[in-house]
Design a protein around this nucleic acid. Structure first.
Lengths: 219, 219
DNA sequence: CAATTTTCTGAACACCGTTTAGCATACGGC
DNA sequence: GCCGTATGCTAAACGGTGTTCAGAAAATTG
């Protein structure tokens, strides 16, 4: 009775096909070019068909965002590898920031969809929504990294989760400002931007380094 | 010949009326509710009339944004006053951050229009555009404050402008993440958010504090 | 092959930003 | 006061959007 299963598979294939089409349009033409009609044209179905697979555009975008977090995961992997396996937690923390910034630079439209969209978790349900669902992998990795840095005595702060949030906010903010062109006059190139990100992470990390590194006083 | 002047005044009044209507709609109903038609309805004119006073929606939004920066200026003024006149530059820096965050909390839709809109400075002309035009007051104030902190020996960094950008990015990022609901599970209340902002500014400020505060060694 | 279920779509709806042709009104010169 | 003109304004339309729904088309079943 493989016939029902084949139907199931085809259905699933079309569903993911829709998501991929949306992802590609966002990547290639930008968010503004992403309409139900443009997706429909690309997959060669009627716009109405999409609504048989997704409740509305919001839900479809949710899937695109999920895919975005997976793509970002690749960047994280790369930067961690680049940092080397002998990197200490603080260096890994920098690697995560670099990954985030680089992902944003190379996937601007994607980044916008993921973080700057009206979003509106439709106050109430906020579990199955946005980064809560797919992003936590990255968020948790960041928190764990900072926790390890604390354990290693590299960072001194009260709460790893708060520290992770701050670190995230720092890089996210710089990235968001850069991408939106709010500091274009100050950052003429992507290199300049990446450098500022490094400086920023240095500043923050420096602020977390214990003041007196256990210098036992000789009486 | 007061007649031409009266006409001029009426024209100007309608123009600012349009901007105020747009501002109010954004404040009251959110950005999504802001359409040329909704503005027209509020000012009791035809939608087409708006185009006699503004080139397009983008230009109109520019004026709204300008008004937004002025409103933010009020917050800055308040927080600086709250900090007191004897506050040192580092404390003033914190006050600026508080103002930014509080403004965002109390004018969410406004904040979004100002910083998270597609923006697109239409690469090329970027003078008369966005924060470059109206925001620089705030940006420059931040840069000056940090420069003063450097001069006072409170902060130790290479470039005040870069420092200002980093400080801005930090608060902006946290704010943007909070407003977009990306860290809702971690920040249940506005108070919790404001506290994280304080902690974040402390961390960054701490990272900028000179390591050894000129402790002349006695030989 | 006929009946039924499943999958899909054409057409419509209400909205959007924007343009244009034309309608009133208020003005300046006679 | 009247007339031509310049000004301010708008109704209607255009092409776009997300979304819905009756019904066509196709695939599966008996």
């Amino acid at each position: 009775m493989g016939i029902a299963e084949r139907r199931e598979r085809e259905k699933e294939a079309l569903r993911t096909g829709i998501v991929e089409a949306a992802r590609d349009i966002v990547s290639e033409k930008g968010l503004d070019a992403l309409s139900m009609r443009s997706i429909a044209e690309r997959i060669e179905y009627s716009p109405a068909t999409i609504y048989l697979y997704f409740k509305d555009k919001e839900e479809l975008l949710g899937e695109v965002i999920k895919a975005g977090f997976e793509r970002m995961g690749g960047y994280v992997h790369e930067e961690l590898a680049m940092a080397g396996s002998e990197a200490d937690p603080a260096q890994q923390h920098r690697a995560l920031g670099r990954a985030y910034a680089r992902f944003a630079l190379e996937n601007t439209a994607y980044f916008r969809v993921m973080f700057e969209l009206p979003n509106v978790p439709h106050v109430g349900r906020m579990e199955d929504c946005r980064s809560v669902d797919s992003g936590p992998a990255a968020k948790q990795l960041l928190a764990e990294t900072i926790q390890r840095a604390m354990d290693a005595g590299l960072y001194e702060l009260e709460d790893a989760a708060t520290g992770a949030l701050i670190a995230w906010g720092l890089v996210h903010g710089l990235t968001s400002l850069y991408i939106s062109g709010h500091c274009a006059m100050m950052l003429p190139s992507q290199e300049a931007f990446m450098e500022v990100v490094e400086t920023a992470m240095d500043s923050l990390g420096n602020g977390w380094v214990p003041r007196e590194t256990a210098k036992p006083p000789a009486p």
